[in-house]
Design a protein around this nucleic acid. Structure first.
Lengths: 200, 200
DNA sequence: CTGCATCAATCGAACGTTCATTCGGTTGCA
DNA sequence: TGCAACCGAATGAACGTTCGATTGATGCAG
């Protein structure tokens, strides 16, 4: 099962799309292989031709979605962006990606909170949604004395935590998406992360 | 099924404990009624005597855990605490509760990310873990001009988001729990939330 | 070019297991 | 006597997975 195949093979694409859709609406339970076959118009036997088991399918889908996310969040950063502008840009992309891809958000939420994630943690290497690149990016801000001089994981937890929690609130209608709200949230996370001794 | 009964009836307590344990280790899947019966030493028939269905059991367990959380996080606030001290105290309790009750954290994570939550959202009223009291508390800070003059839900998302993300990081070993880390995290969230025009 | 062999891709009925739930019965208190 | 608490074998549905069969493309020997 190579990566290129996943992207070009239309049967697999259909299986991924169907699985994402079903998990979003019916949950990890409530998504039997039989329904995936039905929804995707791919025979059960064919699905098992590509994926040895349901777990393998879920895991492959996870890796697929993660790579889409990774491509997305660091996209569109211009040469002339200063650190603060990039800080906002990435955070915004992160929120936007999940809002535009509600099924992936839902799938990730379920995937990461299942013991399934804990079991395969070693193999997953890179933690939640592109956090390694995020980690490097925040470390850069620490090194440049722009961000607080703390353990980078504290900043990652804050940066990602507020983003995920925001998407969750929007999804469940506590919050509505507006430019004003996003702007104020970015201010909150920036004020929290920034080094107040050597302020910019 | 009344609340008092849940707390005093030892069969139900055993069922709750067993369910929490099994869901923590085996997930929402992998936790059949038969195993709950076995682990709790309560016959299947008896479980169905108290809970009409598995869903009802899960839902009752959720309400039970939520009330424990609510009791916990606002506990220990002293009369002489100023707003900032209470802000730290509640946040710390929140993190501490989940660290001390890993099974409940795990259960909540799975519960809230399942479509099961979405289905019963209306009936759940109060959102994630005691957030209504948290919401009132943060609104108080806004009214007193101590916190940023923004939609209170933005602050709730930040306050809770950072806490949950922190617990998650500690649980999955990106971060270790230390006084220094907690202190710095509280600084991050405080600096983010505080009103910088009328600073304290 | 033809005929044959190979093999990946595809299919879905069938299998055995596991699950949520039922139900007929027992116990013991009021 | 009645009724709530309690029990667990039995039931039927639903699930993940298997497997034997079919198709069509590719390569190669004659």
């Amino acid at each position: 099962m190579n990566v290129r195949l996943m992207q070009t093979n239309e049967k697999i694409a259909a299986v991924f799309a169907a699985t994402l859709k079903l998990i979003h609406t019916n949950g990890f339970h409530g998504t039997p292989m039989s329904k995936i076959a039905q929804e995707s118009d791919v025979a059960i036997g064919t699905i098992y031709h590509y994926f040895p088991s349901k777990d393998d399918l879920i895991f492959a889908l996870f890796k697929h979605c993660r790579s889409i996310l990774n491509d997305y969040i660091f996209d569109g950063i211009k040469e002339d962006f200063d650190y603060k502008a990039s800080f906002f840009h990435v955070w915004r992309n992160f929120v936007q990606f999940y809002l535009e891809n509600g099924r992936i958000f839902s799938f990730f939420e379920q995937f990461f909170s299942s013991p399934y994630y804990e079991k395969n943690k070693a193999e997953i290497q890179e933690p939640v949604g592109g956090q390694n690149k995020v980690l490097d990016f925040l470390q850069e801000g620490i090194d440049k004395k722009i961000l607080k001089q703390v353990n980078v994981h504290l900043l990652v937890a804050s940066y990602i935590g507020v983003a995920l929690s925001t998407v969750h609130s929007i999804k469940f209608k506590d919050l509505h998406f507006s430019e004003q709200n996003i702007k104020e949230l970015m201010e909150i996370i920036w004020d929290g992360a920034v080094n107040r001794n050597k302020n910019n």
